[in-house]
């Protein structure tokens, strides 16, 4: 049996590989699940149940002409799509999967995730700007506004957790929950704000205003095709995976089993529960995509600054006050 140590090369290779495969698979999963939710079948032709659909997609994207529009700003146009998958993968480094399973055990893990998410917004911004196309520009603009705004509440919403667990280290946050119970209960408001802000951060439905295909064609990635587009695409799915993994870590006790349903091996149990919880959230996000409609841009911004910000501040205030009161 291998020795699982956080940060071992084996760990790194396995986790990154798994994330990439999962992201690719997710593309297919999402389309199938969406299909079922819409009373359709979804892609079911390539391989059994259509499981190789993503492979086919990748094949298609790779063989497409790698085209840079003559009017685009070359360098940023090429760099932009690379940024997303890279920062998303970097964020994954701090996600604790099971005891001993993870890439990095960072003291400032939570800050790291927020920092990476902040970097991610450059991708859409640069892409939109460099395309030199009015729809791309609008998309880029929307992406920038939306991501930067929601990052604020996302950060504030999880400060309650930091207060409760007394740490930025994600592993310690998981451990703290093991001790005190899931943070979703004391931090319910924080949880809600985090989920919503997270959706907005990943530009997933219903907050896909940056792409908004019914209004601005495809937003910031209008001019992208082939593998450059593929990178945006994959990056988005890694982002979704990341968010789905982060929520259990922060609010649902991470790898620890609920209701004492531990499996015999701690590592296997950890991986299983982590995956199960992540899976639930992935399903939830797909359900959201199938069910909810896209708000207007001004509604999105109003909601953010007028509802989410006060709520998250309130949450922080109350949490702080309660902790202070208890501590005293």
């Amino acid at each position: 049996m291998f020795e699982f140590v956080v940060g071992s090369p084996l760990n790194i290779v396995l986790i990154l590989g798994a994330v990439l495969v999962a992201a690719a698979l997710l593309i297919w999963v999402e389309r199938r699940v969406l299909g079922f939710l819409n009373e359709r079948l979804g892609p079911n032709r390539v391989g059994p149940w259509g499981i190789a659909q993503s492979l086919a997609d990748v094949g298609k994207l790779i063989t497409k002409e790698d085209w840079v529009p003559p009017f685009a700003d070359k360098l940023p146009f090429i760099v932009a799509p690379i940024i997303v998958p890279v920062v998303m993968l970097l964020s994954f480094a701090v996600i604790p999967i099971a005891p001993g399973v993870g890439i990095m055990d960072l003291n400032i893990g939570l800050l790291w995730v927020l920092a990476m998410a902040g970097l991610g917004s450059y991708s859409a911004m640069l892409g939109g700007l460099a395309s030199n196309n009015k729809f791309s520009l609008l998309g880029g603009l929307r992406a920038a506004g939306q991501m930067i705004s929601y990052e604020v509440f996302m950060g504030i919403s999880i400060l309650g957790i930091v207060i409760l667990s007394d740490s930025f280290n994600l592993r310690e946050i998981v451990e703290a929950q093991h001790k005190h119970g899931w943070f979703v209960f004391p931090q319910f408001i924080g949880f809600i704000v985090f989920v919503i802000a997270g959706l907005a951060e990943t530009k997933r439905w219903p907050f896909d205003l940056a792409e908004g295909e019914s209004e601005i064609i495809s937003g910031f990635n209008t001019e992208y095709s082939g593998m450059k587009f593929g990178l945006f695409f994959v990056g988005e799915y890694i982002g979704m995976l990341l968010l789905s993994a982060l929520i259990p870590v922060l609010f649902f006790g991470g790898w620890y089993a609920p209701f004492g349903l531990e499996l015999p091996n701690a590592i296997i149990s950890g991986i299983f529960w982590m995956c199960a919880k992540t899976g639930c959230w992935i399903f939830f996000f797909i359900l959201v995509r199938a069910a909810l409609v896209r708000p207007r841009y001004d509604q999105l911004m109003n909601y953010g600054w007028l509802v989410m910000l006060p709520l998250s501040l309130l949450n922080l205030l109350v949490t702080g006050a309660v902790v202070l009161a208890q501590g005293n």
Binding site: V33, F36, L37, E39, L287, V288, L292
Partner: peptide, 15 residues
Amino acid sequence: TLWLVFTHIFKKADT
């Protein structure tokens, strides 16, 4: 809405 859409997953596909 979420709930209603969710219930559709158990319906037979029209495809």
